[in-house]
Design a binder for these strands. Structure first.
Lengths: 234, 234
DNA sequence: ACCTGAACACCGTTCAAGT
DNA sequence: ACCTGAACACCGTTCAAGT
């Protein structure tokens, strides 16, 4: 039990905590975020558990920060392609990034709200649809249908929670930072009043929309005699 | 601390444990399965925690049993409709069932392997596609594209785990009980050898298949001037 | 033979005591 | 003022002791 490692390397930034947490979840025999405890992370950093609470409020905030770090690594979109190809590229780029952190989808799905980096990414994808000429209405449903695939995995992004939602001031700030999200949220396609992000949608409609797009697409492929051997991928 | 409740009502079947666990996860202020601990469940049943271990090996087996109970509630398919409508009905029926147990999707997604009731359901859906004339190949990809939607939510059903897989004897048993699953698993559409369930798929191909079906469908709707107001749902 | 209380090795987080 | 050890209220599971 020597002190080792020199006394006080870096005074333990928030960023260093998050990077260590991501590295721990990445490694560690596939245990992922479940295997990550405040105590083990503290030990990894050579500090007492309580020291972590100076940089993250609690375990939930640690996980949120880890997700934001990982999602922030997603490469920016290639400029100026057709909207469909551009969305496709961005989704596959997100997938490449998240594949390096296999624990992330499960953590993301359990988040109470999207992180800023997630909102940046979603706003950018919405922008691609809109500049391709799709209506805000159709774009909204397309985002729901793609769901977690937007970040490269197949899950809900976040289940519609009946939480309090942002107040008017916070909503205005969000709208300024994420204009495309604000636009489709404001779309009155669904009867209820749309709060700034996520809330107020007709879950059942979104579910059936995506289901029917998939079933119709599969039917079309069937009628066309599609087979995977035919390199017909794209 | 009186004994209350009469001494030894029912000697605590496995089924009674599972039903109590499902009821606990259903209620309890939205805590879901995370709020369910062996100790709390034991208290709910008026027994000492150790008593539960007579009926379930551990917490993981408890969760598996809970999922099997819930998925077993899914209504059987309506007979003799067109394959697309039949699949649609069965998926929406599954959704109605799982909506009553909002904790279930997260637990299902975390399962190491599908439960028997899940395999029954998946086998039945595959049967609907096949009797509609779709090839085993296309059906296989369709099942991946629908993913968790087959059970009424939007998630991966289970991430491809490189586990040991069933031995030859167990595989034969599975093939006898789930003939449709065995058939599409045996399909050599993907190069690797297909183990009885789930294993051996080309994740990237399946991801891109579903992504392209969705993007192509959205593009088609866009070109057709689709709008959600137009009651164009189905 | 059966059941179970106490114990073990954890966990996130609090809080008062020590420097 | 800052840091941290001990403590609190949990957890899943084991195991030996009691009937």
């Amino acid at each position: 039990m020597t002190e080792g490692e020199g006394t006080r390397r870096t005074p333990l930034n928030r960023e260093r905590v998050l990077r260590a947490a991501v590295a721990f979840a990445d490694g560690e025999g596939g245990g992922g975020a479940d295997a990550l405890s405040m105590r083990k992370l503290a030990q990894e950093l050579g500090v007492v558990p309580m020291a972590l609470y100076k940089h993250v409020a609690n375990r939930e905030e640690l996980l949120t920060g880890m997700v934001d770090t990982v999602v922030g690594e997603i490469a920016p979109p290639a400029p100026g392609a057709h909207w469909k190809g551009a969305v496709r590229d961005r989704v596959l780029s997100a997938r490449r990034t998240l594949r390096r952190h296999p624990w992330a989808p499960r953590v993301i799905e359990a988040l109470p709200a999207p992180t800023p980096a997630m909102l940046d990414h979603l706003d950018a994808v919405i922008g691609l649809f809109r500049s391709g000429g799709l209506s805000a209405d159709l774009t909204h449903h397309a985002m729901h249908a793609l769901g977690g695939r937007l970040l490269g995995f197949t899950q809900e992004l976040f289940t519609a929670s009946p939480g309090p939602g942002p107040d008017a001031g916070a909503a205005a700030q969000l709208a300024a930072r994420y204009p495309h999200i604000a636009e489709i949220a404001a779309t009155a396609a669904h009867a209820k009043d749309g709060s700034a992000v996520g809330g107020g949608c007709d879950d059942q409609f979104e579910f059936e929309f995506a289901l029917d797009v998939l079933l119709d697409g599969i039917e079309r492929l069937h009628r066309a005699g599609w087979t995977s051997a035919a390199g017909d991928r794209r």
